[in-house]
Amino acid sequence: MNSLSRRPLRRVLLSTVATAGGVVLLLSLKPHTTAEAAGATTRSAAPAPAPSASATSPAAGSGGSSGASGGTAGTRTVQGDTVQTRYGPVQLKVTLKAGRITAVSALQVPEDSPRDQEITTFAVPQLTQEAIAAQSAKIDTVSGATYTSEGYIQSLQSALDKAGG
């Protein structure tokens, strides 16, 4: 009878240990970082200049020609290639000063439907912030805006390639 009375206690002890172990495992998992948190971490590690990044409406007559235009002492503006995505073209203009990305402007973005406009309004500022923080085209895509993100990254990379960076 003594062994029967220990079994419930043994079960309680085992379930308590198992629960505590599960809680410890859950707490040991690293939380997923958002783009904003990752950008803030990157910026604090290597401070970037205060950029004036903006996303603009498509420019009339920007049909994929590209090139660099001179600016003030060491400032260059380079247009990336026009990248055709499933929802429309994406083309960027990148401003570099002393080899660093200081601004990225969208010359063309998908805007044919209200949903395209919503996605563009949401995704392009995030992508711009990440590009300036990363100082490269090695940035994450924005969830829900995969095609626009991929077009953005390709156009950004082409501009950086043309600028020699």
Rank of each mutant, 00 (worst) to 15 (best):
Val17Glu: 02
Gly21Glu: 05
Leu9Met: 13
Val17Met: 08
Gln154Tyr: 05
Leu13Glu: 08
Leu14Tyr: 04
Leu13Phe: 14
Ala50Met: 12
Lys93Ile: 06
Thr41Arg: 15
Ser3Arg: 15
Thr56Glu: 06
Val17Arg: 02
Asn2Gly: 14
Ala53Val: 06
Thr85Arg: 02
Ser136Cys: 05
Glu130Ser: 14
Ala45Ser: 09
Lys97Val: 07
Leu92Thr: 01
Ser66Cys: 08
Ala55Gly: 11
Ala159Phe: 01
Ile153Arg: 02
Glu36Gly: 05
Pro58Val: 08
Tyr152Leu: 08
Ala37Thr: 13
Ser57Arg: 10
Ser3Thr: 11
Ser15Val: 09
Ser44Leu: 09
Ala55Ser: 07
Asp81Gly: 01
Ile153Tyr: 00
Lys138Phe: 12
Val124Gly: 00
Lys162His: 01
Ala60Gly: 14
Arg115Tyr: 13
Pro125Asp: 05
Ser52Tyr: 13
Leu25Ala: 07
Ser57Met: 11
Thr120Asp: 14
Gly80Thr: 01
Thr16Cys: 04
Thr42Glu: 13
Leu92Lys: 06
Gln108Ser: 04
Thr72Cys: 14
Arg100Gln: 07
Ala106Leu: 05
Leu4Phe: 13
Lys30Cys: 10
Lys138Ala: 10
Gln91Tyr: 09
Ser3Cys: 15
Ile101Leu: 00
Gly74Ser: 08
Gln108Glu: 07
Ala133Arg: 02
Pro31Asn: 11
Ser158Thr: 07
Pro47Tyr: 00
Gln79Ile: 12
Ser65Gln: 15
Ala48Arg: 08
Ala145Val: 03
Leu26Gln: 02
Val104Arg: 01
Tyr87Ala: 10
Ala37Gln: 11
Lys93Cys: 14
Thr121His: 11
Gly70Phe: 15
Ser57Glu: 09
Asp116Leu: 05
Val90His: 04
Ile101Lys: 00
Arg86Ser: 06
Leu25Asn: 06
Ile101Trp: 08
Pro125Phe: 00
Pro58Lys: 03
Val104Asn: 00
Ala53Ile: 01
Thr77Gln: 07
Lys138Thr: 13
Arg10Ile: 15
Gly71Asp: 10
Pro51Thr: 08
Ile132Arg: 00
Lys97Glu: 03
Val90Thr: 04
Ser69Cys: 14
Val109Asp: 09
Pro58Asn: 11
Thr82Asp: 11
Pro58Met: 05
Thr42Asn: 12
Gln154Phe: 10
Arg7Cys: 13
Val83Trp: 02
Gln117Pro: 05
Ala131Trp: 02
Thr42Met: 12
Arg7Asn: 14
Leu4Lys: 12
Leu9Tyr: 06
Ser155Tyr: 01
Thr56Cys: 03
Ser66Thr: 15
Arg100Leu: 03
Val104Leu: 02
Ala55Trp: 03
Arg100Val: 13
Ala50Ile: 15
Gly80Lys: 04
Met1Asp: 14
Ser28Cys: 07
Thr41Asn: 12
Ala133Leu: 01
Val23Phe: 01
Ser143Ala: 05
Ala38Tyr: 05
Ala106Phe: 07
Ala133Cys: 02
Gly22Tyr: 00
Leu27Gln: 07
Ser28Pro: 00
Arg115Ala: 15
Ala59Ser: 14
Arg76Met: 06
Val17Asp: 09
Glu130Tyr: 11
Thr141Ile: 12
Glu36Arg: 13
Gly144Asp: 10
Ala98Arg: 00
Leu14Gln: 11
Tyr152Thr: 01
Tyr87Pro: 09
Gln154Thr: 12
Ser105Trp: 03
Arg100Asp: 08
Thr95Gln: 03
Glu36Trp: 12
Ser149Asn: 03
Val17Lys: 09
Val17Tyr: 06
Ser54Phe: 04
Ser62Trp: 14
Arg7Gln: 10
Ser65Asn: 14
